[in-house]
Amino acid sequence: MSRRTSPVIPGFGLTLGYTLVYLSLLVLIPLGAMFVHAAQLTWDQFWAIISSPRVLAALKLSFGTAFLAAIINGVIGTLLAWVLVRYTFPGRKIIEAMIDLPFALPTAVAGIALTALYAPNGLIGQFATSLGFKIAYTPLGITLALTFVTLPFVVRTLQPVLADIPREVEEAAACLGAKPLQVARHVLLPALLPAWLTGFALAFARGVGEYGSVIFIAGNMPMKTEILPLLIMVQLDQYNYVGATAIGVLMLVVSFILLLLINLLQRRISRS
């Protein structure tokens, strides 16, 4: 495993060893233990748990809302990144500093704040009520909460890439007669897409697992607004450790496959 390029600098064995031991003890072995625990189940038992209607409904809800939230972030995140990198305007510094608020704010605080905002009698929720629909306690509310907590991902992955594209490239394309949309499609899109996908994947992965900000606004009705992480909690409260483990394994495997697919897509794009 050791193929050093800089033999002068000491500490390779120490730091690599420490890193591996720390990661193994705190992350890898505990995660592995979950899979071992799940192996107590036969395949049929496992299948029976994860194919129950309640689990499937939660699976669809969790991945669906996380996907939607990541798409919304893909749009508004691109807008924010573009404006922050390309323009100077009043308040730019404030927006720039506050973009990371969702990462700094405890998710439970975000959860109760958004619930107060979107509840039927809340500041925004009352408008929805008068129009005859609900935001909080529906998948729409869950999507909005996930959009809030994952907002910084796309902005922060796009910003450095956008800053690195020289403006001259766009100007050159425009001088050669390209219309703004053509510039966007042929110059900006190929350069930005890999970073955009990274931001999207990060937001998506975080959204699938998110718990604190969602449970307040979700309403947590089984089959309707119950997310997967909450379902794990429900199993744990009933001391059904096997059920909780099976759902946990399902969640990890599905997220892993999706992230792998996004990764492959990204590779194909950056190769072409």
Partner: peptide, 27 residues
């Protein structure tokens, strides 16, 4: 340093980001 398996190590370091916090408690 350069060593084999480095990109796997970096992926493992990032792993907790894509694990749901509820699963982190569960394990």
């Amino acid at each position: 340093y350069e060593f084999r398996g480095k990109s796997i190590l970096v992926t493992l370091i990032d792993l907790p980001f894509s694990v749901s916090p509820v699963i982190a408690g569960l394990i």
